[in-house]
């Protein structure tokens, strides 16, 4: 068993285990942290597969993304600490069946397909980054620029959506008595 295989197995099992923990724990902060560890293990798998640039990018990007997600979890959840052990699941059997079916189908494909010869020689890390740079700013420039523009559009759209919601009239609420209007005083 090669060293690469051992590390791939270890980080892969860690990624899957932390992925499962995301939906097992009642604490939302723990969920976000488990997802962060899962994504970091995937980044470590990238490093094991000798794609240094993508591995480091994955770890840095997910660390930021999951930190933001943890903040949102605390803001929006009714029970972010999980102390009340609220049940936040529905259609359990369907979800479990779909998850197992997806896993079984993808595993069967991985095992049964003929993958052909395996490459042993790959460009070193510096050469990979150089080639990727030429690819991004050469032949694939339009796709790369489109991706940047898509992120910008999503940022503006998300901000506009969030700000607009504050100006909407409140949904019909039950009458709370004569002093209700005082809550809206500025």
């Amino acid at each position: 068993m090669s060293v690469q295989l051992v590390f791939l197995l270890a980080f892969g099992l860690a990624a899957v285990w932390f992925g499962i923990v995301v939906f097992r724990t009642h604490s939302m902060v723990r969920s976000a942290l488990a997802l962060l560890f899962s994504q970091t293990a995937i980044g470590a798998m990238f490093l094991v597969m000798q794609t240094e640039f993508l591995g480091v990018l994955q770890i840095m990007m997910m660390a930021t993304e999951m930190s933001i997600m943890a903040i949102f979890m605390v803001m929006f959840m009714m029970d972010p600490g999980g102390l009340g052990e609220m049940d936040m699941k529905h259609q359990r059997k369907l979800s479990l069946g779909a998850g197992i079916l997806a896993f079984a189908g993808a595993t069967a494909l991985a095992l049964l397909a003929d993958w052909g010869p395996i490459a042993t020689e790959i460009p070193d890390a510096g050469e990979q980054v150089r080639l990727l740079g030429f690819e991004l700013l050469g032949r694939s420039m339009l796709i790369f620029e489109s991706a940047g523009l898509t992120i910008l559009t999503a940022m503006i759209a998300a901000t506009a959506m969030a700000v607009q919601a504050a100006n909407r009239p409140e949904p019909a609420a039950p009458d709370r008595g004569p002093d209700r209007g005082k809550q809206h005083g500025h």
Binding site: L5, L8, G12, G19, L96, A102, F103, A106, A110, L111
Partner: peptide, 23 residues
């Protein structure tokens, strides 16, 4: 190595499908 990586990815995919549907 390729097959092990693909199986781990299948595990993540199955977990994600379960999470997206059940939460």
């Amino acid at each position: 190595e390729l097959i092990v990586t693909l199986i781990m990815a299948a595990g993540l995919f199955g977990t994600g499908v379960y999470g997206a549907l059940s939460q």
